[in-house]
Amino acid sequence: PDSPLSRWTKSLHSLLGDQDGAFLFRTFLEREKCVDTLDFWFACNGFRQMDLKDTKTQRVAKAIYKRYIENNSIVAKQLKPATKTFIRDNIKKLHIDSAMFDQAQTEIQTNMEENAYQMFLTSDIYLEYV
């Protein structure tokens, strides 16, 4: 009853907390050409754990912004304009804060829960694994 597979169907969080689950979901998203949304989600979690006194943290914040938000990537398309503006202003003013990507991550997560996660649970790649 508490097998990894039963946990995968419980929630997106439990899927992403499992190594095999996260790997399989990532493979699915690569096929669907939206793997950037998952990488962004993990990047937000990694960023939140970084030390704000470390100069690397500022460089990572900029890298996340450039890679996922500044351009017209799939992540940028799923974010509200106000959310993108908020992050852009923080980057420009060098207001680097652990929570600066929280709202963006929530928006991406909600989108994944409603779309990609549901599709994953009925996908061939998932059913074959099961």
């Binding site: 190594q19 996260a22 990694g46 754990q49 970084m50 690397k56 990572v60 890298a63 996340i64």
Partner: peptide, 20 residues
């Protein structure tokens, strides 16, 4: 010094689940 891409990759990897 690591490139921004390397730092970003490390950040992503650090947040991924580890083997149970």
């Amino acid at each position: 010094m690591d490139s921004e891409d390397d730092l970003l990759q490390k950040c992503i990897t650090s947040a991924m689940p580890r083997q149970r």
